[in-house]
Design a protein around this nucleic acid. Structure first.
Lengths: 227, 227
DNA sequence: CGAGCTATTGAAGCAGATCAACGGGGGTGG
DNA sequence: CCACCCCCGTTGATCTGCTTCAATAGCTCG
């Protein structure tokens, strides 16, 4: 009981910090908090499948969720990896009544879950909420378009270089970072097979990228940029 | 003068029918109409370039606009082709102050142009507008994610088959349609080189697809689906 | 009717997927 | 605490699909 409460408090703070919810004013935040159900799911758990009747909007509190599509022959393609503070299924509030893709927990994670119907009625009562949703969707849209453009323009090493630059601090030329998920997840996020990611990393070795497990050392950002 | 007015009337009706604007109520529609500037641009005209300070939101009334990115070596990749009734740059209302891509008229076309700053203040005055924007953005987001998934899952002939199915009537098994733009534009939309599109069409010949200029005859939709 | 752009077709090259085999590290059970 | 095992990641080899380059044919518009 006590443990549940402290957990809940930690989650509250993550929720408030999430751009999705914290962007609005106090009243908006409170309304969201009140409507949230906290769920914990083990790694690899399927949250929902494409084509099922859409029921929930989610916001990741902890861990990572894969959103992916299946081809007829069973191949999977990730369309998005959602991390802490990110919401998904915003586009189901209006305009679609079925889940547009499959969702799977990349690792053990905790989520805030919102009933779509309730979100819709919240929007009717409190128009400010729409603005928060709009912010979140703007980000999703921009990220997705970036992703599409990168897929069409860049090779595997370039995508990886991009990722490493984006993750690192803006100013430093040299840093190290820890991948927040498995390499296979990163591969999916970048639209690559795991083998291709592996090869991309080794081709970046010359540019001063050293990989040791999940720890990645970047020695020369400017070299990365020129890839 | 007279001619300008009749044109303007036709444009008004297109605007009202656009999901972007017509979705709201009368008041919302009126506000949008009032803020719109109608512009006509010749084919190949550049509307704006990536990185420039964002100034306008657009809604296509007539013709098609290519949104694309450039790679460092000058290659182009389309992220979206916008047709009549579709809005673009919605994601610039909040969250970004620079254009995210280049925009070029695929053919001679007319557009409704909205000053972003004015849209923002309209939103403050009349919260219902946000809902209209949200609708439009939901569509953009879903379309873009579909596009990303298709890129990652489907081969060139499959993408073309998809397009032909999506464009045709839902029920018929046999129909013909006219491409609303050049084949090179379709190629870009599908993330292909023009040559690849050409080859895809010829590989679909066995499935009953006959191409004659911009006219495409589809004889067997079910065969297309199995591609 | 010609000029220039658009589309098609062929040939070659390349990037990434796939398949298969191996190594290593972390978690589990003894 | 150690040993084992399983799964993740790497590496190599092959294969497919798309791009690129080049040449030709067809359209469209002046």
């Amino acid at each position: 009981m006590n443990k549940a409460m402290t957990l809940r408090n930690r989650e509250r703070s993550t929720l408030v910090q999430a751009p999705f919810i914290g962007a609005g004013d106090e009243a908006v935040t409170a309304k969201f908090m009140e409507a949230a159900t906290i769920v914990t799911v083990p790694a690899r758990q399927i949250l929902f499948r494409q084509g099922e009747t859409a029921q929930y909007l989610f916001c990741v509190l902890n861990g990572y969720v894969r959103l992916y599509r299946l081809s007829r022959d069973g191949r999977e393609a990730d369309v998005r990896i959602c991390g802490p503070g990110e919401a998904f299924n915003e586009c189901l509030i209006f305009g679609a009544d079925k889940y547009q893709h499959n969702a799977q927990a990349a690792d053990s994670c905790t989520l805030a879950r919102f009933d779509l119907e309730r979100v819709r009625s919240m929007i009717e009562e409190e128009p400010k909420i729409v603005k928060a949703v709009l912010h979140s969707m703007s980000n999703s849209l921009r990220t997705t378009m970036d992703c599409l453009a990168n897929d069409r323009l860049q090779t595997a090493p370039q995508r990886v270089a991009n990722y490493l630059i984006a993750q690192g601090p803006a100013d430093a030329n040299c840093y190290s970072l820890r991948l927040p998920f498995q390499k296979s997840v990163l591969a999916g996020k970048l639209g690559l097979a795991p083998e291709a990611l592996s090869r991309a990393f080794s081709s970046l070795r010359d540019a001063g990228v050293i990989v040791r497990g999940r720890i990645i050392q970047v020695n020369d950002v400017s070299a990365l940029r020129h890839f």
